Simulated scan of single mutants.
Amino acid sequence: MSQSIRNWFNWRGWAVLFSAIAIVLGLAAILSPAFRGFIGHATTAAWASAIATFLAAGIALFISGAESRRRQRDQVAMAALYAAYLAPKFERYCDDLDDIRAIAIFSKDEQTAMLQIREKLGSLKFDVTPEQVMHLVPLERHAAHRIAHGLATVEVACSDMKSMLEPMTTPAGYMRKLAEELSEATDHVTVATRTCKALAAKYAIPPTGAELSGHR
């Protein structure tokens, strides 16, 4: 079977085929008394009813599956749109968290480090909403859930620091705990950002030279 025939013989081809079979059977029933007797037999009617029910169920499952696949493709395309928009913001966010984490890990003066971290966390800008992150749920490797966990971890750390009336008198071991929390948050968001970039790259394709010059 050639490629052109295979391309034509999709669901339209099957519809034409079954329509032709139905027409032939109808003409045979009209023109042949024996065939009319066969069609009118109770056993034949029972088998025809069973086959029709089976075919109807099969068609319903096929349509349902096709609709489900279409919705899934639409959801992935929408997730790719948000991934293309949010991935650069996630990258900048991770860079800022890396700077803060480095202060928490490597600073020898804990009091100075605490003041620097509090200032940097307070000025940390990230205008991504939970509703936007929700659109990333179709992404692989649980990217949306990792991002949500990382963002929540940083929010809790910021809230804890703001609740301290005197940052110079932090509890023992707090700096180490803060470094671990920031490391966990950064790791979650970093890995998820790679997933966002990979999906966005499939849709947000850089324009070609022909497109930039105005040629299609």
Rank of each mutant, 00 (worst) to 15 (best):
A113G: 07
Q111S: 12
V133S: 04
Q116Y: 10
V137Q: 08
K108V: 08
E119H: 15
L124D: 09
Q111P: 02
D127V: 00
E140F: 01
K120W: 09
L136Y: 04
T112L: 15
L121R: 03
G122C: 05
E131L: 11
S123R: 14
M134F: 12
S107V: 00
R141G: 02
A113K: 02
P130V: 02
E110F: 05
L136Q: 02
E140V: 03
E140T: 09
K108G: 10
F106N: 13
D109K: 04
L124S: 07
D109N: 15
A113I: 01
D127Y: 08
L139S: 00
Q132L: 06
K108R: 15
E140C: 00
T112R: 13
D109S: 10
S107P: 06
L115K: 11
F106Q: 09
L136P: 01
K108Q: 14
D109R: 08
E140K: 12
R118F: 05
E131Q: 14
S123M: 12
V128A: 04
L121E: 03
E110H: 11
R118P: 00
Q111M: 12
V133A: 06
D127R: 07
E131D: 14
S123Y: 11
M134E: 15
L136W: 05
G122T: 00
R118K: 13
S107Y: 10
E110K: 13
L115N: 06
D127I: 00
K108A: 14
L124H: 07
Q132W: 13
P138H: 04
H142M: 14
H135T: 04
F106T: 10
H142I: 05
P130N: 04
D109M: 06
E140L: 04
F106R: 11
H142V: 04
E140N: 10
L136F: 05
E140G: 08
